[in-house]
Amino acid sequence: MNNPYEVVPATIYEIIQESPLIRTLRVQPEKPIPFKTGQFIELTIPGIGEGPFTPSSSHFISENMDITIMKTGFVTEYVHRAKVGDKVGLRGPYGSHYPLEKFKGKDLLILGGGCGLAPLRSLFTTLLHEVEDYNSITFFAGAKTPKDCIYKDSVTDWRKYDNVTFMRSVDVVPDGEEWDEEVGLVTSLLSKLDIDTAVNPAVVCGPPVMMKFGTMDLIKCGFREENIYLSMEKKMYCGFGQCRHCVMGEFYACKDGPVFTYARIKNEEDIWE
């Protein structure tokens, strides 16, 4: 019998310090872990613990994987102490993925902020792989300050496609920091949106408060609830609907999600917490 708790050992071969609190681990698993963009994996720091993280690399690559992680709790504290060459463990992939087939031929909006950009980078780079299949892709990325912006090295690349718009906004520019792009909440970029919101899909991921108000703003812009895709990252402890920590009413964030349409979960309680 297959052991569903089985861990695939992986080696960290590169670490990119994206911002003071966020780093991307580039890991090489002992055997490929094919996944669909939006799905998550459980990353183990041996002897310390594990946590759910969404790969931030394209799902067209399965031999290695990028995982972008913010230092914010017990396990991630150790993630940020990890060094190149360290061994970690991976389980998964688990959960639902972004329905790319529903995005094809459409004008897709991607809205995200902070470390919520991790799954969105996976989605975005996956889309770029077949970029001509999409009518247009608009990616609005937010951060607190210029220093907190992640994936800085990719920005130029991401802006070279004719049908792709990539815009960034920071909440504030502290004295001494330079910034020549937008300033304000990421949702303020929505005023620059030029697509038919009634028929096109939007994907949102970010800190809970950003997801909540982002979703409300999208609805105000005319997006339909069933076209708004949310990555609901909860305490997905086991990954396969057993431990019940991520239960939202009748749904499991890990098994039925993490990718939900807003229409599906809007009646559940405390979804933004």
């Binding site: 708790y5 050992p9 913010m70 305490k235 431990c243 920590h245 309680e269 405390d270």
Partner: peptide
Amino acid sequence: EFVKVRSMDSCQLNGYARVAGGSTPR
């Protein structure tokens, strides 16, 4: 070798659904 131990948990405990960063739905 990776070793995983499964224990019982309780939704009555404060840390049960808490995510990194401290947010909890209950």
